[in-house]
């Protein structure tokens, strides 16, 4: 399945958002996720099915003013 993860085109077999995070070695309770411009809460990731060409954003804390 073709997915756009943080702006990069990737070919990934994961069926759900939770599986995607595991397959890309993301971990920790400090991540926020959105798919196609809509937030997907932490508790909803396991049940959130991905589709071809979905745009996924994975954000984490960083320095800011």
């Amino acid at each position: 399945m073709r997915l756009i993860v943080n702006g990069e085109d990737q070919d990934i077999a994961s069926q759900t958002l939770a599986e995607l995070l595991i397959s890309l070695d993301y971990e920790g309770d400090w991540l926020a996720t959105a798919v196609n411009g809509e937030i997907v809460h932490r508790d909803d990731r396991a049940a959130f099915d991905l589709n071809d060409h979905d745009r996924i954003e994975i954000l984490s804390p960083m320095q800011g003013g």
Partner: peptide, 30 residues
Amino acid sequence: TVSLRRETAGGKQGGAFFQMIRDLGTRILP
């Protein structure tokens, strides 16, 4: 004040920064 940015695969950088901020014990304004 803090921000959010794309995390590279592995997701470790943001965690280290977040832990440091939490350790300072201040309120956080994202």
